[in-house]
Design a protein around this nucleic acid. Structure first.
Lengths: 183, 183
DNA sequence: GCCCTATCTTGACAGTGACAAGATTGACTC
DNA sequence: GAGTCAATCTTGTCACTGTCAAGATAGGGC
């Protein structure tokens, strides 16, 4: 193994990649700046230059997650049959396949909600949600239509959170259970 | 200031009380065993005897929260008018008035879900929920009735989580917004 | 060939959770 | 009332963490 070059070249994305891997494998409590640095093969203080502090790195990682989330939701929104239901399924599938990342994305005490890039990323995701829910209501400015849209969001979000927390019945499995709840 | 007695007498509840105070004031990230010990006026290793490790203490604190939660839900369930709606309001009110504790209670990565006392406490809370939702359905064993009951739970839980995360619109305020969603 | 800025490293410090070993206390026994 | 013992708490230590300051290195523009 040759000694690594002093300048990495693309350290920022490499750190994010390493962080996501550790997050998925070991969870948020084991995700430290030093562990990320070790995984990326750089010194323990290297992340500070790109992200400032741990909160900055986690915020950037959450933004990556929200952009991916937004893409999946937007894709589901194009479903010809039942866009709202397809959206709900995608929402829960994301939470289920990337549980630690999903939890991080909605864990505001460890994130910097004022970060512009983070705000833009969350905006993308929620815009995809809003498009579908708004399309279903006759008058988008109506209070009751907003209530229905928010209720749909709360429903799938609550399902996802309770599922990740292990609080939902394990039978008959997440997919079938979601269909019951969405029925 | 007299030197404190070697034996505290009721250290376990005192530690839990101190922990809840710090949790409410400074958040989970600032809640350390050593900060709790300092607040209770004991040595940094004193909590270990009663709770084993930090996870044990947090689990015990979450159990306290779930017992309090269960009491409020059971009280709401006796509402003569609309028990389900009263339950939902109590659910969200608890989350809103004790946000850090509520978050901790549903933060399984830092808790020990196998702890018997914790399981008993969560069981109390969810039993109160189940009683009300089951009473509303004609045939409790029906799949669709379970779906409706779970949907109600997911709805208020998702609302609570999104609210605490600052993701819901700030207008017209949490109470009115909840009424829209429950409509 | 020189400078200059972006990028990364080294070293240090206070704080943390966990563990081992020991100190203290109160209750129980005789 | 003296002795024993288990419950309870303290002290000391270790590895690990995030953050900061200072310095080292590299690569591009002149």
């Amino acid at each position: 193994m040759a000694t690594r070059p002093y300048h990495h070249g693309a350290l920022r994305p490499a750190l994010l990649e390493a962080a996501e891997l550790i997050l998925a494998q070991d969870g948020l409590d084991r995700l430290s700046l030093r562990a990320i640095s070790r995984a990326a093969g750089v010194s323990h203080a290297a992340p500070a230059y790109h992200f400032g502090d741990l909160r900055g790195l986690l915020t950037a990682l959450a933004a990556v997650g929200f952009r991916r989330f937004a893409g999946l939701l937007a894709e589901a929104a194009t479903s010809p049959a039942d866009p709202l239901r397809a959206l709900g399924r995608s929402y829960v599938r994301f939470a289920r396949t990337q549980p630690a990342l999903f939890s991080l994305m909605f864990h505001n005490t460890v994130l910097n909600g004022n970060d512009p890039d983070f705000q833009a990323a969350t905006g993308e995701a929620f815009a995809a949600l809003a498009r579908v829910t708004a399309a279903r209501s006759p008058s988008p400015d109506d209070v009751s239509s907003r209530g229905r849209a928010l209720a749909s969001w709360c429903l799938v979000h609550g399902f996802s959170m309770l599922l990740l927390d292990g609080r939902l019945p394990s039978q008959p499995g997440p997919d079938a259970l979601l269909e019951e709840v969405l029925a």
